[in-house]
């Protein structure tokens, strides 16, 4: 009796992994992410190096590498969110919840399995995104004879925290997907929030001390606190920072709360 749920959960996680790898979605998203991150990280390194220190934000040699490398997660995070949300909403859209719940009628276990499988996949996206930002960024820095700091342990600690952030973002996507089962609505919300609403909120919240206290709990701020460096820290110098582990917990809380609400609203509903 005690072993059964654990074994069932193992089967469910196995099946959720297979669901992700047997459609084209994951590698298409990964491919776009890698190209996008490489262009931004490499391109920005080149631009900053060419204009020199006369214009734009002042970036020291010590700031440059972590700033460029953190693009892997600071612009790449939308991809694991989309993966988590699309994989989850496609169960509703293609009515595959029916065979899923027939194979395993314990719905809570399936949602946990989905969160586990996609968190791992989000980590994989993190590895790919950081490989892209570090690869492209350090390559261009080498061209301009700048210090890419690849032997600095702090850089690799940042990469590790970025991978964790990407993993957590993917689970936030799952939570969003169960909360908003309409695939189109979920995509619109992800894009509008991450690309438009949140950047404005973060900028506006930085204007007063009180709102800044609240603003640090926005998912993007929490993610930047976790990773430890991003271009926001340059544009909004008064940012109140959470510790990296607090940032991780805030992101995890978003994923858990959204999944929990989604479980009670859409996941447990009649499947017709």
């Amino acid at each position: 009796m005690s072993e059964q749920p654990v074994r069932q959960l193992g089967h469910a996680i196995h099946a959720e992994f297979t669901k992700i790898t047997t459609t084209r979605l994951w590698w298409m998203l990964a491919l776009i992410m890698i190209v996008y991150v490489a262009l931004v990280a490499g391109g920005l390194t080149a631009i900053l190096a060419s204009v020199g220190g006369s214009r734009g934000p002042q970036i020291t040699d010590a700031q440059r590498a972590p700033l460029i490398y953190s693009f892997g997660s600071s612009i790449g995070y939308v991809f694991p969110v989309l993966l988590g949300a699309l994989v989850t909403t496609s169960e509703f859209r293609h009515k595959t919840l029916t065979p899923t719940f027939l194979a395993m009628p314990r719905r809570g276990r399936i949602l946990v399995a989905k969160l586990v499988a996609l968190t791992v996949f989000g980590g994989l996206f993190g590895v790919l995104a950081m490989a892209s930002s570090i690869g492209a960024g350090s390559g261009v820095m080498a061209l301009f004879s700048q210090d890419a700091r690849l032997t600095d342990p702090a850089i690799w600690a940042l990469a590790g925290r970025a991978v964790l952030a990407m993993a957590l973002w993917c689970s936030v996507g799952v939570g969003l997907g169960v909360l908003i089962p309409s695939q189109v609505a979920a995509i619109v919300i992800v894009l509008a929030f991450t690309q438009f609403v949140e950047p404005i909120l973060r900028f506006a919240s930085g204007l007063t001390d009180v709102t800044a206290q609240i603003g640090q709990y926005l998912p993007g701020s929490a993610s930047d606190a976790l990773v430890g460096s991003s271009f926001y820290s340059l544009t909004a110098p008064t940012v109140v920072g959470l510790d990296w582990w607090q940032g991780a917990l805030v992101l995890l809380a978003y994923a858990v709360v959204a999944s929990f609400l989604g479980f009670f609203t859409s996941w447990r509903r009649d499947v017709t």
């Binding site: 074994r7 069932q8 089967h11 469910a12 196995h14 099946a15 297979t18 669901k19 047997t22 459609t23 084209r24 979605l25 496609s90 293609h94 009515k95 595959t96 919840l97 029916t98 065979p99 899923t100 027939l102 194979a103 395993m104 399936i110």
Partner: peptide
Amino acid sequence: SFHPGRTAADHLRVYAQAAG
């Protein structure tokens, strides 16, 4: 209920795995 982008064998494999 099938995901149109998944092959028939993969579809069956997913649910065989889920059921152990």
